[in-house]
Amino acid sequence: MQWFLDNVPFVAELAWLHLYQSVLPLLLGLAVSLPLGWLAWRVRPVRGVVLSVSSVLYTIPSLALFVILPVVLGTQILDTANLIVALTLYAVALLVRSVVDALNSIDDGVRQSAQALGYRPLRRFLTVELPLALPVLFAGLRVVSVSNISLASVGAVIGIRNLGVLFTDGLVRSFLAEILVGIIMTLVLALVMDAVLVLTERLLTPWLRHNRGRQAVRPFRARPVRPDAAEAAVLP
């Protein structure tokens, strides 16, 4: 505790770096995943490739990826960019799937109704499908946020500055307090980010807030299947 009070600026600086290294990949990952996920959802062959590549990416352990990336990118091993790129890749790998799942989760009736109203595909995506995809998308964002924050500290092993430094330094000095502060700060960051995401989601989805407690009316999902769904083929 005393150690923490004595080192607040140091810890704060590391926490700030840590936050930056976890949040930037989250935003970059989202920016890449939205169009990529949409494409993968619309075009079946693309979906196969994207989902396979993302599942392979996932499988590569972070420590290995941190080390292989400089070879591929030509960056220095200590460059923070390696960590940012690696976490962005993980974020894309997860979020692309979230986007596809989210778009799949939208009730077909709603989509057809938007089509019948005369929406063109781009506007339909931005004003109908994307808002309705938000709950599933945010579930993905929350997973990415937690895992990014947890993974970033592994970067300290290869010498990247963030809260992970408290672990490597604490180990070298056999100093318990420093490690505990590192763990607690990491958890706090993860919690704060999660809270921010939850709040953002609530702000963006007012229609879900309104029918909490009115679960009896579930208009779009629990309806009987249309009698001639089979003949209701839809043009994209």
């Binding site: 009736g109 709603v110 057809q112 109704s113 089509q115 019948a116 005369g118 309705l132 229609w207 208009p219």
Partner: peptide, 23 residues
């Protein structure tokens, strides 16, 4: 054009097909 054509016709479907995120 399909989208323009559709805007000239009202369309009502089973369970309304209302957009759940709009009032």
């Amino acid at each position: 054009p399909a989208a323009a054509l559709r805007r000239t016709m009202g369309y009502v479907m089973q369970s309304g097909g209302l957009l759940p995120h709009r009032t």
